[in-house]
Amino acid sequence: MSELNTESVEATDAPTLHALMRNRYGTSWLPTPNAPDTRVNDVIETLLSHRSVRAYSTQPLPADLLQTVMAAAQSASSSSNLQAWSVVAVRDADRKKRLAVYAGNQKHVAAAPLLLVFIADLSRLRRVSDVAGANTPGLDYFEAFLVAVADAAFAAQNAVVALESLGLGCCYIGGMRNKPEDVAKELGLPPEAFAVFGLTIGYPDPAVKTDVKPRLPQRVIMHLERYQQESSEALTDYDATMNAFQRLQRMAELDWTTQASRRVRGPEALSGRDRLMSALRTLGFGLK
């Protein structure tokens, strides 16, 4: 019998849709008029309850976890079935420490029992084509790189949903792009392989409470038929919602609009990723 607990929660134990939506959107959420407050299945509950987990317990991971999660990841959609991605599973403590430094000294990278690094990988397609004696100029175009990044993202999100359904916590590590050449060397990546992001994995530390972070209101993200610019009122409401969340988490209050604007203010805010295009060329990508 598998060591993984895959038993589903009884429908009567599941929270209602309204409760999950209030958690996901905070005070900015309003129910659809006359919509029933229904119960949802396990998949919807898992998705709407997602939160980033950066503090992990000492509970060991199941022996078959990696194999199961990889099967879930590989079940994601893939553009033209090219499967232009790979993953490097890192358990070695010293390697995690070095990767944590490359990723901006994020302590949870080193502390997590397992780190998965998702790779946009065109090298395998190059090797397959070489064996077949086929020309591969198509791999030198930006489209091929974009396909590889998308495939890696699809796979990773499948992995996250699977992990969270099993009671584990995860956190994406975009800092793997801070020093891509160093990460590639550490992981032994071939040319035309690039670490898109990492994913820390472990059982959440019960002593550290992590709440669901509110998202932008649906009226900001979702457009009916044609794109419509969001209202300033909607963004003001979301700033207030995020301030309430920050107070709950005992964080410094900072409007989302201010935080987002600071993050894109210029190359100095990109943690070294402003040179990503030149780094990708160094790693062997054509990017025509």
Rank of each mutant, 00 (worst) to 15 (best):
A84M: 06
L47A: 13
I44N: 07
H223A: 11
A234E: 13
P190N: 05
E186N: 00
L235R: 15
F118V: 07
G198E: 04
E225M: 05
L61E: 12
T257F: 03
D239K: 08
T12E: 15
S57Y: 08
F145Y: 15
G104L: 09
S278P: 00
A110L: 02
T136N: 07
C170K: 04
F285Q: 00
E181W: 06
A11L: 15
R54E: 10
E181V: 15
I221P: 05
L66R: 11
A110W: 00
T241D: 10
F197G: 05
P137D: 04
V87Y: 10
A73G: 14
A260C: 08
D140R: 08
G104H: 07
M21C: 07
D121F: 12
G174T: 06
V161H: 10
L65D: 03
P60H: 12
T32Y: 12
R273I: 06
P36F: 04
A11C: 09
Q157G: 02
L146W: 10
K107A: 14
A234R: 03
N23G: 08
S8E: 03
E230R: 08
S2R: 12
P267R: 03
P36C: 11
R215C: 12
A55F: 12
M222Y: 15
T46H: 04
A195Y: 09
E143K: 01
F154Q: 10
V220E: 05
F142T: 14
T16A: 01
V220W: 08
V43D: 01
F285V: 03
S261W: 09
S28T: 15
G202K: 12
